[in-house]
Design a protein around this nucleic acid. Sequence first.
DNA 1: TACTTCGGCGCC
DNA 2: AAAGGGCGCCGAAGTA
Length: 481
Amino acid sequence: MRRFASDWGDLMIRPATPAAYQLLHHGVLALAAIEHNGIRINLNTINKRREDIKEKIRDIEERLRGSKIFKEWQRSFGSKMNINSRAQLAHVLFNKLGYEAANKTAKGLPSTEAEDLERLGIGFVTGYIKQAKLKKVLSTYIEDWTVETGADGIMHPSFNLHLTETYRSQCEDPNLQNVPIRDAYIGPLIRSCVEAHDENSYFTELDFSGVEVKVSCANHKDPTMMRYLTERNAQGQLVGDMHKDMAAQIFMLPKETMPKEIRQTAKNKFVFPSFYGSYYHTMAIDLWNDCVKYKHKTTDGVDLIEHLKSKGIRELGSKDKDVKPVKGTFIYHLQQIEQDYWGRRFATYDRWKKRIWEQYLRDGGISTLTGFCIHGVFRRNQIINTGTQGPAFHCNLQSIIWIQEEIRKRKMKTKLVGQVHDSILASVPKNEFDDFAPMAKKIMTKRLCETWTWINVPMEIEVDRAPLGGSWADKKKIEVA
DNA sequence: TACTTCGGCGCC
DNA sequence: AAAGGGCGCCGAAGTA
């Protein structure tokens, strides 16, 4: 059964101030308008995509059938063989063929998640993962959207404010908040099915930049982090880049010539996990795996792991988290980095984490910047994150409320059609765009900061727009005054 | 047949 | 001391 926040006896959605109540009240109404507007699916495109994907799956399966591993699978399971059963695959790989699982699941079974399987370096498995991913998007997006879309071509996802523990929103039937984008092949495949409401409107996305990090600053007020988000040069460019700085420190490279992919690895496998409460051991393994997976190279073309060796880091170190980190291993190195990160670089942030946790233990709850009570049984990492995640979303929600009000007041034909935590989706008629975009930008970057004076670093947004007749997949960044 | 749990995977 | 925050949906397999 789906778990609702309200299932926990003493935990409930609890606006603790009039402003928080108003935010929920007007938020629900604005989201109802979005739900009513709905989002347009191009039925021709989605039908084409269905056939393309099915054909691709058939092709891959055809190839798989010729493989030795497939035949072993057939021998083991006979008529019970089901290519969609990961448990069967695990049995074949790890029991019959003697491969060693790279990881275990929570219940101690061998992991069959894509990354762990791919690490085995088996051709069959690579193909298997490919078709499994395609089946996932076929059922979750193509097939489900087809069912959810009415004859008018409009789909109406539900947005709720009362089901999430952190006071974020939730979206269902279908969930519009997990539409593929990272995979360069699958993202456009699915997003190309989503369009503006008519051929004279732009499909538009308004996206807060780094809103969670910025809202976290309002909580901890760490001067170093605030400087990263505030200090600009004469051209208006931010001076510092914390992801690049961390990449430089972790991989012992000069930041001036930092390759983009290495910065990305530091951002996704160290900086963000650190915010969410991960620690050096897990992060070291993830960083190391990324280096292997993406074959990272320094600007001189040296393999990043070889480069680390030249700097005295011989190996990853023991994956057993109970083993004390040994000098000369990457895990030991990460332990040093982490100590510096929380002990020196973001020491104020670190002290806030301790303070908020102690406050929670003392009072049995905390209150958020937007006036909500977080009350109930939580783990430490939940307490540290919950006061940031909710208010960050509330920046988006308050913007939605005001933008929706302006649309009504100005009798515009623009329709808000969705919302993804820190971004707003709209279908904007051609002749309204030059009014709409600056109006929305002003609300999201100016009015919000003037009203919520706890915001202590500048807010920025990115505006992306698809050409007329284009789709969500065609969105391009544009400059808005 | 209907439901639950698990592992997996899509997003912020 | 513990060790990645928040969601929804899918299929397989087990259970009622």
